[in-house]
Design a protein around this nucleic acid. Structure first.
Lengths: 181, 181
DNA sequence: AAGACAAGAACGAACATTCTATCTGGAGTG
DNA sequence: CACTCCAGATAGAATGTTCGTTCTTGTCTT
C-alpha cells in the first residue's frame, strides 16, 4: 500500500512537496520499512511509475489486439483511456500530468512509452492502407491523441464536469475527424 | 531579471526543487533584495505567473480582434501559440505544463483564463452562426485546443523536432477538422 | 535462542525566511 | 566645487525548521 499512498500524495502535491514522513503517516508503514523496500525516495517514485505504466500497458494490449481496423483500434485506445481516467484517476494523472523528468533520472517520457508508440504505428499503417488521410503520420497521431489527452487533463483538473464515459463518443468523433480520409 | 531567472528555473526543475539560493546564483540578485521585492517564494511564483499570462493575453487580444470569422480567429490563436512556443518557450511552458495548484494557493487554472474562455466563446458563436458543426460547444473547444496544446507540449519536451511554425498549418487543419461543419 | 524485520529516534544537510552590517547616490552645506 | 550625511536598498551571515537517510532498539517468528 506504500506505492498507492505515495502515488496519491505525488499526484496531490507533487513529488518534491511530499516528504517521507507524510508517506509514513498516510500509508501506515514506517520509515525503516519503506527504506527496506526502496533504496531512496526517487526509487520509490520510479517503481510507482513503472507499476502504473505496466498496468496500463497490459490493459492496452488486451483491448487493442482484439480490434481489427484502424478506427476500432483507436476507439479502443480512447475508451480505455477514458475508463482508467474515471476508475483510477490517480493512475491516469500520474501518467499524463506529472513531469517525471523533474525527479526520475533517465525517465522515458510517456509519449515514447509502448502504448503511444503503437498509436503512432497504428496511424502510420492506417495512412498506408488508405483508411486515413495522407500526411505526416506523427502529426496525425499527435492530433488524435491531443483531443483525447486534453479532455483527460481537463477532466482530471475538474474543468470537465461530465464523466468521460458519457461524452467519450463525441470526443472520439472529434478526434477521428482530425485524421479520417 | 529575477522574474525571468526564476521562471527559467521553475520550468527546468519545478517550483519545489528550486531554492532561493539557486535563484540568487542565477539572477545575480541577493537574498535580501529578492525578499524586498517579493514577500515570499510563493509570491514570486505568483508574480511570474501573472506577468507571463498578462503578456500573452495582450498579444492574444491584438491578434484575435483583427480577425473576422471563426476560422480566422481560431487560426490567429493557434499561430500565436506556436509563435510564443518557438520564441519564448519558457513562457509557454510555464503557462501550459506547470501545475500551479501545487504551489500557488487559489491559482486560476489556465483553462479558465481569459484567452481560453474567449476560445470557448468564439466556438459557441461559430456553432450558432452555422460556421461549425452542432454539438457541445465546450467539447468542441476542448477538441480544437487539444490538438494545438498537445502539439505544444510535445514540442516543448523535445518530442516534436520540427518548428511549430513549419508544421503549424497542418496542425491547424487537423484541429479545424474536429469542429468544422 | 537467534535471525530477520519493523519502528521511530537521531543526524547532518539544506531549506525559506529574517536580521544586521554595509554600501550607494543624491540632497544639503560651507 | 568638495565634502558630509542620511535614507533606502543590498548583501550575505544567522536562525529555526524540515528534509532524506541512517542507526539503534525492540519485537516477532521459528
Amino acid at each position: 500500500m506504500v506505492l498507492r499512498a505515495a502515488r496519491k500524495l505525488f499526484v496531490e502535491k507533487g513529488y518534491h512537496a511530499v516528504s517521507i514522513p507524510a508517506i509514513v503517516k498516510d500509508s501506515g508503514v514506517s520509515t525503516g520499512a519503506i527504506y527496506s523496500y526502496f533504496s531512496s525516495k526517487e526509487d520509490l517514485a520510479k517503481q510507482v511509475y513503472e507499476q502504473t505504466l505496466d498496468h496500463f500497458e497490459a490493459r492496452f494490449i488486451e483491448r487493442v489486439s482484439s480490434s481489427s481496423n484502424t478506427y476500432e483500434k483507436l476507439r479502443a485506445f480512447a475508451r480505455l483511456v477514458f475508463e482508467v481516467t474515471e476508475d483510477d484517476p490517480d493512475a491516469m494523472e500520474y501518467m499524463v500530468s506529472i513531469r517525471h523528468e523533474e525527479f526520475i533520472t533517465d525517465a522515458v517520457p510517456l509519449c515514447y512509452s509502448e502504448p503511444f508508440r503503437w498509436i503512432q504505428q497504428i496511424v502510420a499503417e492506417g495512412i498506408e492502407k488508405g483508411e486515413l488521410k495522407t500526411g505526416d503520420y506523427f502529426l496525425s497521431a499527435v492530433s488524435f491523441t491531443g483531443v483525447i489527452i486534453r479532455a483527460v487533463e481537463l477532466r482530471l483538473s475538474g474543468v470537465v464536469k461530465e464523466s468521460l464515459l458519457e461524452v467519450g463518443d463525441e470526443l472520439i468523433t472529434n478526434a477521428w475527424a482530425t485524421i479520417k480520409v
